[in-house]
Amino acid sequence: MKRKPQRKASGRPGKKSTTKISQGKILKYSALLLFIGFVIAMGYQYRHGFMYWLGFKTDKRVTALTKEERKIADLRIYEVLSRHKGKVLGIDVSHYQGKIDWETVMNDNEDFPIGFVFVRATAGKSKLDREFNNNWEGARASSYLRGAYHYYRPDENSVQQADNFIKNVVLEKGDLPPVLDIEKIPNRQSLDSLESGLKRWLAKVEKHYGVKPIIYSGESFYADFLKKEFKGYNLWIANYSVFEDEIRKEWLFWQFTDKGQLKGIESTVDVNIYNGSYSGLSRMVK
């Protein structure tokens, strides 16, 4: 029997294969281009920080952070600062910073000009920060505008917490308003009880000092638990996101990093920006 000749394979399968390869290459190159674009965009976004790190900051000290972490932290700090020229820079401290050499802080940080310092005074109903007196007097001796803050413990009595702050903090002429630091929800109380307690603390402290306190909190915590009930208070907001690079108009103070580094302070320190000029900040004092 005569065999039926086999049909030659058409070119179509080959074309399909070629098409698949081409599409794969296109996707690969597109992803690469997107990545390159992202790197370029980030480089432009943080160009001032790169310049500072590469050219101007030559005496970096490494403490708890690794060298790479220190580079990244410096990058963001100086990028943010470059966007806030004319604003006032400050720090906040507690015993977590150890013994601070305030004379060195004042004299040896020309590239990191500080205008104000917030000092942790008390926590809960009975705790006094171990370094409060040293930091409180050191900030004044260094001619910084200074303010004191209380770390609020949600499950402790609010009136006793206010009494603890009042007993330990004497505000003098030229001091900033007192600050209530609230960061956690209660374990044993309801949110309604938390709000009531915060209001009692704020009312008692305001009555004693004759000035309305400032509220400090993380951005998410404030938005979720405090915003509706505490309108009218000046805000000091903590937000360390790399996507947040400018202070918002509703924030009086912005704590944008906890990785600042200053001569005279052995550990890292929180860095803050006041949303205005030094003259505006001076008008806030007692």
Rank of each mutant, 00 (worst) to 15 (best):
L145F: 13
E172D: 13
G174C: 04
M51Y: 12
I166P: 01
S282V: 10
I247C: 11
E244G: 01
T63S: 15
V117K: 02
S82N: 12
S190I: 09
S126P: 03
I273E: 00
L34K: 04
I26T: 09
Q45A: 15
K99T: 14
E110C: 10
K99G: 12
S143I: 02
A31N: 06
L89G: 01
L262F: 05
D92H: 13
K207P: 01
H95W: 00
I36P: 02
Y274K: 13
Q189V: 04
V271G: 00
D258C: 05
R188L: 08
K286W: 01
N157S: 15
R146G: 03
F256G: 03
K173P: 01
V80S: 02
K167E: 15
R188A: 11
Y240A: 15
D74L: 14
R283M: 14
Y151P: 01
W236E: 05
T104L: 10
V159D: 13
F112A: 03
L171Y: 04
H84A: 11
Y144Q: 01
F253K: 07
K67F: 10
S196D: 02
G14S: 13
F243W: 08
W254T: 05
A148S: 10
V39M: 08
S22R: 13
G260I: 05
M42F: 06
V205D: 00
G264I: 10
Y52D: 12
L281C: 03
L54T: 13
D59I: 09
T122H: 03
S82Y: 02
W102L: 12
K249M: 07
V119A: 06
S143G: 03
K127P: 00
P177E: 10
I237N: 06
A148N: 03
F116V: 11
P186Q: 02
A203T: 08
D163A: 14
G276R: 11
L34V: 07
Y149N: 00
S126T: 11
G210A: 03
T122E: 03
I26G: 05
Y52V: 14
L202C: 03
N134M: 06
Q160C: 05
F243Y: 07
